[in-house]
Structures are given as structure tokens and as C-alpha cells.
Simulated assay, not measured.
Amino acid sequence: MATESGLSVEDGVRELLLLMPRLVGRAKRLPVPAELADLSLAPRHLSLLSYLLFDGPMTITELAGRLKVAPTTTSLMVGDLSRQGLLDRAEDPNDRRRTIVSINDGKRCAVDAWLARGAQAWERALTPLTPAERQLVITTLRAYEQDVAECCAEDS
């Protein structure tokens, strides 16, 4: 039932439970550019590629920290995408033990095109909001993701 200032918690939960599968389903159906179609890309690769596209080259450890996964998991993903020619790995000139990861220059436009549709949709959705409202949306989605992750960890 709606309250004077908006939805009740129960109505909000109902709306989000109906919305989330559609949102995820549509995001998964974003067409992969032809240049990337032969690669074994999964949703988990989107975040990795987004960080490299938006923030530039970084080390495996930096990527792992941003992805909130173990460096070995990140290293496996990077190795797989490197073998497919999507990512480049280079020795850090300042510390030869470290590897710098970047998107292959020949694939950068295709990666940008793939991620641009989602970025444009978020930009259109967030533009009418105030900075505080944008932060609230992001904080809420992070809290939901964290709680679901904790529930999944308890069930395993």
C-alpha cells in the first residue's frame, strides 16, 4: 500500500522483485559487437572490461580489488581474455614482478560499443536525479547485492 510519501516497503519489494529479472534479462540480451562475438564473454567480464575501459590499464591486484575477487580469479579471467586477443598483458617497467593489463587497441572500439548502450541507459536514468538521489540508488543496489551475496554464502 502506498504511503503519503511513496511506496510502502512491501510494495517496493514487490515492484523490485518483478523488475529485477526483466532488468537483468534485458542487460544480458545486449548484442555483442561482431568483433567480439567469437569470444567466450560472460557477464562477469563486463565489470573487468568496464574498469579497464573507464580507468585505463592496471595491475591484476588492482583489478581484483575493484572486482572484489581473489587475484587468482582475476588472473584466470585475464589469462583467458588475453589468449583470445581481447586483453594485453605487459610487464610493469617499474616492477617486473607486476603485470599491467589493458584492452587490446584493436578491440577497444568494440568493447566501448558493447558497454556504451548500458552506460547510456544509466546516464538517461540518473540524469534527472539529484546527486544525493543518485548516491541513494547506488547505495541501495550495493546493499541489495551485499545481502544477496551473504545469503548465498550462508546457503553453500
Rank of each mutant, 00 (worst) to 15 (best):
residue 133 E to T: 06
residue 106 G to F: 11
residue 112 D to I: 09
residue 31 P to Y: 01
residue 34 A to T: 14
residue 67 L to I: 11
residue 104 N to G: 09
residue 41 L to E: 02
residue 51 Y to T: 06
residue 32 V to L: 01
residue 122 W to L: 07
residue 70 A to H: 14
residue 122 W to E: 03
residue 131 P to M: 05
residue 53 L to G: 01
residue 105 D to W: 04
residue 68 K to N: 14
residue 118 G to M: 00
residue 57 P to W: 07
residue 91 E to V: 15
residue 79 G to E: 09
residue 42 A to H: 13
residue 86 L to A: 03
residue 121 A to P: 01
residue 10 E to T: 13
residue 76 L to D: 09
residue 19 L to D: 12
residue 106 G to C: 12
residue 22 R to Y: 12
residue 96 R to I: 13
residue 120 Q to M: 10
residue 81 L to S: 03
residue 125 A to D: 07
residue 57 P to F: 07
residue 76 L to R: 15
residue 8 S to R: 02
residue 17 L to S: 08
residue 13 V to W: 10
residue 89 R to W: 02
residue 111 V to E: 03
residue 53 L to Q: 10
residue 92 D to F: 04
residue 39 L to I: 04
residue 128 P to Q: 06
residue 114 W to N: 00
residue 50 S to L: 06
residue 12 G to I: 07
residue 55 D to G: 04
residue 45 H to A: 04
residue 134 R to K: 13
residue 76 L to S: 06
residue 72 T to H: 08
residue 86 L to D: 04
residue 109 C to F: 14
residue 62 E to P: 02
residue 131 P to G: 12
residue 122 W to N: 01
residue 22 R to M: 13
residue 36 L to K: 01
residue 21 P to E: 03
residue 121 A to F: 02
residue 130 T to N: 07
residue 103 I to D: 08
residue 129 L to A: 05
residue 23 L to F: 09
residue 44 R to G: 08
residue 24 V to S: 01
residue 116 A to Y: 04
residue 78 V to T: 06
residue 39 L to W: 10
residue 51 Y to G: 01
residue 113 A to M: 03
residue 45 H to L: 03
residue 20 M to D: 02
residue 51 Y to V: 11
residue 101 V to Q: 07
residue 126 L to M: 14
residue 30 L to M: 10
residue 99 T to F: 11
residue 10 E to M: 12
residue 20 M to A: 11
residue 58 M to C: 11
residue 123 E to C: 00
residue 95 D to E: 02
residue 130 T to Y: 05
residue 61 T to C: 04
residue 101 V to S: 06
residue 81 L to H: 03
residue 66 R to Y: 06
residue 52 L to M: 05
residue 69 V to T: 10
residue 114 W to P: 00
residue 17 L to W: 11
residue 24 V to W: 03
residue 87 L to Y: 11
residue 112 D to A: 14
residue 17 L to V: 06
residue 63 L to Y: 10
residue 9 V to C: 09
residue 48 L to E: 02
residue 29 R to Q: 09
residue 58 M to I: 11
residue 107 K to Q: 15
residue 76 L to Q: 15
residue 60 I to V: 14
residue 92 D to L: 06
residue 102 S to F: 06
residue 9 V to M: 09
residue 63 L to Q: 01
residue 84 Q to N: 06
residue 119 A to H: 03
residue 11 D to P: 00
residue 19 L to E: 12
residue 92 D to E: 13
residue 106 G to L: 08
residue 26 R to N: 09
residue 18 L to V: 07
residue 100 I to Q: 13
residue 73 T to L: 03
residue 58 M to D: 11
residue 71 P to V: 08
residue 120 Q to N: 13
residue 80 D to N: 14
residue 126 L to D: 05
residue 123 E to G: 03
residue 115 L to G: 01
residue 89 R to D: 02
residue 46 L to I: 11
residue 48 L to R: 07
residue 45 H to S: 05
residue 109 C to M: 14
residue 79 G to W: 12
residue 11 D to N: 15
residue 102 S to E: 10
